[in-house]
Design a binder for these strands. Structure first.
Lengths: 334, 334
DNA sequence: GATGGTGATGTAATCGATTACATAAGCGAG
DNA sequence: CTCGCTTATGTAATCGATTACATCACCATC
């Protein structure tokens, strides 16, 4: 394996000059530049990036921590991150925690170990103090989620208002017994969507029935099973607001499995607007999040942190919108 | 940021001893070990892995090149890779090519650059000679795909026989005008599935109608659009075999959009058995691939290559199976 | 008590690039 | 012609860990 020394020797220059040619910096005459390039070509030389990393103390790599890469929502956000990273010459290291909060904290360590220049969390179940301590010293961005009361750069939508919007839509359609399939309660985003749900009920003076709130885990299976449970109640809900589309699809399947029709017997609203939301039948009324854009903005924000550029707006709230389709009836179909 | 020197100074030992404690190698008395550990604790020291990488010339990182991370098939394979990697202390770098073959070749360069210890390709559109040249020098594994005539370690299923199996199922149900929605023809896997389709037709002496083979790109949209085209023929097909589930779902939607019923008017068979295949209605008859296991085996194979262990079986063909559901009628529902 | 072996620790080279600093050459202005 | 500035190039330190090799102390053996 040829090293920079071999190139230098062959081109009859010093390693410094070779490096200058490689990095396209400083002053090199066209003639020596050509000589160096020829040597590189002849030796089939590829610079060993580990030497560069150590010397420059940066790797042009960012770590993205995701709770579950098979979740289409996250993979779409990741795509946005990748797109911006690639454009700026950064690489993306993937950390799939498989929903294990302890793994999340472990991944934090790659920062002081200098393995990556910064990181983006698509999930935030890390202790606030720890996260704040790290975020002070290293570039960290939260995407999708935020940490209550912590001043950490964040890109997300307003989960409270969008959940309220979704619930209100059901209320407007005449529903009063509205169930909520929430995400895991140790995730802020889940709590926010629940809060928005409560706000909508309160605003329309609908009494809260605690049994109508069921905690799921964002999987199809949990949506399915919890809905079966809801339908077994003496007074089952006439509408279900699920905290994501996969659970909503699970809900629809469960309702049908019990012989019900959607939206005629039970209306369903989802969240995220993944591709399947419009393909599935009935197509899902849902809250559309700008997934790709969340990823893009998060990466752009991270880049600015890495480059030490002063970031004026550290918290970014992107617009979402209610997409009305067939799963809740009443509205027009899109 | 504390370095190993600081720890050495504080513990009153040499850096060599600190390193011995860190790596848990060589002979260190329990007493000095404790002293070193205390110093590490006190300084909140984290070893800078870049120094280690350079000296050891390995990064315990592997690169996975995937054509599209939002494709549930690939993300499931990736999960299998991740699981094994994590267990062995390896990290996973993600390279999403967004279906750009040129990017694929570019990613090959990270190997001589020493940035990763090995790589797994979930897609193989790289020139054979180039790939072979690299695979001779560095640990490379192909998952899902293989390269014709090249002796590169590979984990996959037998796409020809499984496509034949799927097509034969349709023939057994009485279909004679069977269309095939193929994947991109520059991918071997697509060509293999097409070949299996042809083999089944030939075996049952069904004449091939070239117009019934339409080249898609594995996306829902292409499945939808190509099916609309097929349905516009004077003699439209009575069955469609799609090269993956997403195109199959697109086909179903297109058929319905034209007022047809599945499977009554047109039968549909997919490929992969992604989660949505069983959720979607009608549930899809499809070829189930062991996605997670493909990832696992590929990573295990790669690990052995990295560690220089002689690999006896370089080509691994995993079993697939035909899952019969509702989208093609006739069979029992699962 | 000399010899050799073992275990604990230190010294310093090493990995491969980058870059601060030194040096030399070339050129224009006075 | 000389001074000073610019440009091109070289020398060598540096990044932080790992590790080959050296050293020393201690103990057992004959």
């Amino acid at each position: 394996m040829a090293s920079i020394k071999d190139v230098a020797k062959r081109a009859n220059v010093s390693t410094a000059t070779v490096s200058r040619v490689l990095r396209n910096t400083g002053n090199v005459t066209e003639e020596t530049r050509q000589r160096v390039l020829e040597a590189i070509e002849a030796l089939n030389y590829q610079p060993n990036v580990l030497g560069r990393y150590l010397r420059r103390m940066e790797t042009e790599t960012v770590l993205v921590v995701v709770p579950d890469i098979t979740n289409p929502f996250f993979s779409k956000v990741l795509r946005g991150i990748e797109a911006v990273a690639l454009k700026h010459g950064y690489q993306v290291l993937l950390g799939d925690t498989q929903n294990d909060a302890r793994l999340e904290e472990q991944y934090l360590n790659v920062l002081p170990q200098r393995q990556v220049d910064g990181m983006i969390f698509l999930t935030a179940r890390i202790r606030k103090e720890l996260m704040e301590e790290m975020a002070e010293q290293f570039p960290i961005v939260l995407a999708c989620e935020y940490l209550e009361g912590a001043d950490i750069p964040t890109v997300s939508i307003d989960n409270i208002s969008s959940a309220r919007k979704a619930t209100e839509h059901l209320i407007r359609l005449g529903h009063r017994r509205i169930a909520h399939l929430s995400g895991p309660m140790n995730i802020i985003l889940s709590r926010d969507r629940l809060r928005g749900y409560y706000q909508a009920l309160a605003q329309h003076e609908i009494e809260v029935d605690a049994a109508l709130v069921q905690e799921g885990d964002f999987t199809y299976e949990s949506g399915y099973n919890l809905t079966l449970k809801l339908l077994a109640f003496e007074k089952p809900p006439t509408a279900i607001f699920a905290a994501n589309d996969e659970m909503a699809i699970g809900a629809v399947k469960a309702i049908r499995h019990r012989g019900g029709r959607v939206p005629d017997d039970v209306a369903v609203v989802g969240f995220d607007d993944i591709q399947m939301a419009s393909i599935f039948e009935p197509s899902l009324t849902t809250i559309a999040q700008p997934m790709f854009e969340i990823g893009q903005k998060a990466m752009e924000l991270l880049l600015r942190l890495i480059e030490g550029i002063d970031v004026e707006r550290r918290q970014l709230v992107l617009p979402d919108r209610l997409v009305i389709r067939d799963s809740c009836g009443g509205g027009r179909s899109v």
